[in-house]
Write a protein that binds this DNA or RNA. Structure first.
Lengths: 135, 135
DNA sequence: GTAAGTGCAAAAATTTTGCGAGGAT
DNA sequence: ATCCTCGCAAAATTTTTGCACTTAC
């Protein structure tokens, strides 16, 4: 149903070079939020000739194409995840650290309206709820 | 009602040096989300002898003390704001980097309902909208 | 064939740190 | 007096870029 990263590269008319295919494969397989160093390490495990500069360039390319999303967790490095898979928000249990993913169409629509009211077109969002379990 | 940054420094037992007083003053006066370079420039306007390293050290100190909050808006630099200012969310213009603050009672209420539906009691949240200006 | 992409190394940008001098308590 | 903090410069980290060579279309 959801197109693969490689499919979306093709759909965007990006040149399918060996490094790009490899990075797409690494991102497709990732269920975490890898930084550039990690992506490079995973790619280099399959083809050691890939350079860090290419990973940086490719992530910027994929971001501009809307294929991946950049995340900043406050540790000074950018982290990345599949933009198609990122249609969820996070609720963090502040007592246990447990993270629950959720999607709410109503809140997505409301965000659109808020952006529009401010004169903007919504391109993305990040929502984190901090909460404690109800007794 | 809300204590000034300087008051909170004192309450936390931080040493009140000239550079820290000056940085506290700059942050107190700020209504935007300045990065370190900007904070340094504003401080240097009043005392040119202040160093960038001291601004970095002081921001980390204030963050550890819970006096300011670090924000990452995806441009590679940390930005800072008073931790005790009234709650608001952020809309970031991804083309210009401009940051607009907003509060929306409807979205606050909706977040409460989402948390409740998941069996949680909402304690706080963080919402960032990424958008581009409409033509 | 041609425009775009790659690896490498150097550069740029942001943040941290070692050190001796100076200041707060 | 004793730590702590400062400014400076050097180092560390993360990201970008110039260049010559290679590749996808």
């Amino acid at each position: 149903m959801t197109a693969t990263i490689l499919d979306r590269c093709e759909a965007k008319g990006l040149r399918l070079t060996a490094p790009r295919r490899l990075i797409a494969e690494v991102l497709q397989a990732a269920s975490d939020h890898p930084d550039v160093e990690t992506i490079h390490a995973r790619a280099a495990a399959k083809d050691a000739s890939i350079s860090l500069a290419t990973v940086y360039r490719t992530m910027n390319l994929f971001e501009d194409a809307g294929i991946v999303e950049r995340r900043e967790f406050g540790d000074g490095r950018a982290r990345w995840e599949d933009a198609e898979r990122d249609h969820h928000d996070h609720l963090i249990d502040v007592q246990t650290g447990e993270v629950i993913e959720f999607v709410d169409p109503e809140i997505e629509a409301l965000q659109e309206r808020i952006a529009a009211r401010l004169g903007y077109e919504l391109k993305g969002h990040r929502l984190e709820l901090f909460a404690i379990k109800r007794k």
